[in-house]
Simulated assay, not measured.
Amino acid sequence: MLKWLAVVFLSSASMVGATTPIGEVICAPSDEMLSRLAQQYGSERQASGLRGREQVMEVWTDDRGDWTMVVRYASGTSCIVAMGEHWIDFAPHDPA
């Protein structure tokens, strides 16, 4: 799944030269990126946090345990900076 996701994003998104666990940073307009993660890959945003005034870090996961770390910029661009497998959520879930 992860290799397929990377291939699809690499074939249609711009790349920014950087050394990351996925080899390249994969960038696209935020709407497109988030739509693909949710609709095409069944991922859901599990966590987010601010990284300065113009960046939001997000972790997206799917029901198979694959995860994707996305940086969403105020400019309207999002970049996948890391992805992996076997995500485990240790946070307690509210049963309500």
Rank of each mutant, 00 (worst) to 15 (best):
I26H: 06
Q40F: 06
M69H: 10
A6S: 11
W87Q: 06
Q55Y: 08
H86P: 06
D94Q: 08
M83L: 12
S48G: 09
G65E: 03
H86Y: 12
P92A: 14
E44L: 06
W67L: 00
A38F: 02
L2H: 10
Q55W: 08
L50S: 10
D31G: 12
D31C: 05
L50T: 04
T20G: 02
R64E: 12
A47T: 02
I22R: 00
P29M: 05
I26M: 11
R45V: 05
V81N: 01
G17Y: 13
H86K: 13
V56H: 03
C79L: 04
Q40E: 11
P21N: 07
S12Q: 11
G76K: 07
G84P: 07
S30D: 06
S48L: 10
D89G: 11
Q55V: 13
D62G: 00
V70D: 00
D94H: 11
V71I: 14
S75E: 10
T77V: 10
E32V: 14
R72I: 05
P92W: 08
F9G: 04
V71C: 09
G42C: 01
L37D: 01
G42D: 01
S30M: 03
G23A: 03
Y73M: 12
M1F: 15
L50Q: 09
Y41E: 07
I80A: 01
Q46V: 09
V25R: 07
L5R: 11
T61W: 01
A82G: 06
L2S: 09
T19L: 13
K3Y: 13
D94W: 10
A28C: 08
S48A: 11
M1P: 14
A91N: 13
S11G: 10
W67H: 03
G76W: 08
H93Q: 14
F9H: 11
Q39C: 07
R36T: 02
R45W: 02
A18L: 14
L37N: 01
E58K: 06
V56R: 06
G23D: 04
S35D: 08
P21D: 03
